[in-house]
């Protein structure tokens, strides 16, 4: 049940529109972001910060970002499975 619920939730709010994913970059490093479906956040690999997506609206204010090391530390406790398998690589095409 929990799993199904989570699936439904995912369908409703995970991810951002195609337009946004083409245009948005990390506000600090201006490098491409990748979507992490598990935590529903946008991750800037170049500086290791994740920005949450709430109701389909990405929050890209630097103060809303979380250092990724901290977040991974807390999430590995609660979830099973390797990160790599679930992370969907959606790098914006760089010009």
């Amino acid at each position: 049940m929990v799993r199904i619920g989570r699936m439904l939730l995912k369908d409703a709010s995970v991810g951002i529109s195609k337009t946004l994913s083409e245009i948005l970059v990390c506000p600090l490093s201006k490098q491409p972001l990748r979507l992490c479906e598990k935590t529903n956040s946008l991750i800037s690999d170049s500086i290791g910060v994740s920005y949450p997506i709430v109701d389909g609206i990405p929050r890209l204010v630097p103060t809303d970002g979380k250092m990724i090391d901290l977040e991974e530390g807390s999430s590995t406790n609660s979830t099973v499975g390797s990160d790599d398998g679930k992370i969907n690589h959606q790098r914006g095409s760089s010009s």
Binding site: I16, S17, T19, L20, E22, I23, L24, V25, C26, P27, L28, K30, P32, G56, I57, P58, R59, L60, V61, P62, D64, G92, S95
Partner: peptide, 15 residues
């Protein structure tokens, strides 16, 4: 589309 962002740190790709 909607984004929460700071004008001092624009999250838009170059060009």
């Amino acid at each position: 589309s909607f984004v929460v962002g700071d004008e001092e740190f624009l999250p838009f790709k170059e060009s």
